[in-house]
Amino acid sequence: MLSRDEDILKAAEDWRKEGRDVAIATVVETWGSAPRPVGSNLVIDNEGNFLGSVSGGCVEGAVVTEAMDVIDSGKPKMLEFGVADETAWNVGLSCGGTIRVYVEKIS
């Protein structure tokens, strides 16, 4: 089963060892009703392939795009998604919660 976090992190390690550039996104804070608990992971490679999830599919697209930037720059980023934050991000969570996602590159 590839839905388990350990398999996702193992995949991230394997991808990196194959020579791909890889970023890990982690849900670090949630407020209100959030689809995935704190600690959930999404891993992304430089071609936009991804495994895991940080929401029920609502913001993965945006996280993948931001992860590309993080892979390019090598600098970690803190992203925030929520209904009240539509000016900062064009995507939000339909469930009404807010989540903060930390994105970092594997170096």
């Binding site: 350990e6 992190l9 193992k10 991230a12 390690e13 990196r16 060892k17 890990i24 970092e104 590159k105 594997i106 170096s107």
Partner: peptide, 10 residues
């Protein structure tokens, strides 16, 4: 995250 940290974690 450094690769060796990820490796040790796994």
């Amino acid at each position: 995250m450094k690769l060796d940290v990820l490796h040790k974690l796994n």
